[in-house]
Design a protein around this nucleic acid. Structure first.
Ligand SMILES: [Zn+2]
Ligand SMILES: [Zn+2]
Ligand SMILES: [Zn+2]
Ligand SMILES: [Zn+2]
Lengths: 155, 155
DNA sequence: TCCGCTATTGAGAAATAGTCTCAATAAAAA
DNA sequence: TTTTTATTGAGACTATTTCTCAATAGCGGA
């Protein structure tokens, strides 16, 4: 298991790869999150940095975390925060959603195996399951095709 | 398949069950959402009502939708909107989360079948899967036990 | 049916979370 | 070292949701 050191290296490589700058603050944030054990949010990172004598602005941390995520150093544990939406449930079977991240198209899918496994997992940990969120994100067929053209996207 | 009528009845029963009042506005909101076909958000409901001559305040609709959800007339299609959180991903295997809605405890689980099925579903619809959110909500063992005592909770 | 109690409503204020602006700073290239 | 330009910080701003409180309206009992 590699430590924070190799994480930093990977992050630097990631930044250079897309001609982003390897900065003091970005490295501090990277070190801070790599030391963490559990789950954390933006302000916890800011606080951690401050404790270590680095005063980074919230905006900067907000900007850094997605980079660390893209570099594979951290993962978001809560989905993408968007406006709450609903749909009719009466007389409809439960289903989950496949969402195109480019055109926002939503496809509904019904796949009972998921629900069965979810209950199995809950049972395994003694939880009484009451609900779940399950959304798959990706590119829909149309956007996949279009994707070939619109290439690299520097920042 | 039962129409909006039986939905209203069910909603009334739900309200009476917990000594909540069956009001004009709540019924209007219920009717509005039961007519809907696809996904919708709060403001779309407000607009729909207004079109039908009912001027309900956004706050009221915000208050009514969770009731309709609890009554089983509608379902939220986006997870629970909460502050974004992260966790270290480097040198960790992917996992999803089981969250206790009472004490907020988080249990991590790793269950490869989910990821395999997710890819299968994506493929089925021609999507190129890039990420997902998958969280299970319920009561953890400790809170389940405690739940026996703390009963009905009137509003 | 009318009365009284209190839940619900409306309107806007407040809270919450995240993004944007822009002048100052600091990487990296030359 | 100089030049170029990405990044930073601080706070303003946006978007979404929740809260506050006076006015209104269900609902149970007389
Ligand atoms: Zn599901
Ligand atoms: Zn749906
Ligand atoms: Zn997963
Ligand atoms: Zn986790």
């Amino acid at each position: 298991m590699a430590g924070a050191g190799s994480g930093i290296d990977r992050f630097r490589a990631f930044l250079r790869d897309r001609s982003l700058r390897v900065t003091e603050v970005r490295e501090r944030v990277a070190l801070a999150v790599l030391q963490r054990h559990g789950h954390f949010d933006v302000d916890e990172v800011v606080a951690e940095l401050r404790r270590g004598g680095t005063r980074a602005s919230r905006a900067t941390v907000y900007r850094a975390l997605p980079l660390l995520e893209q570099a594979g150093l951290i993962a978001a544990t809560t989905g993408q925060r968007e406006r709450q939406r609903y749909e009719r449930a009466l007389d409809r079977r439960h289903h989950d959603h496949l969402v195109c991240t480019r055109c926002k198209r939503v496809v509904e899918f019904e796949y009972p195996a998921f629900e069965i496994l979810q209950h199995k997992v809950a049972e395994m940990y003694g939880f009484l399951l009451t609900s779940h969120t399950h959304q798959l994100f990706g590119l829909c067929p149309a956007c996949r095709r279009r994707e070939g053209a619109s290439r690299v996207r520097h920042r």
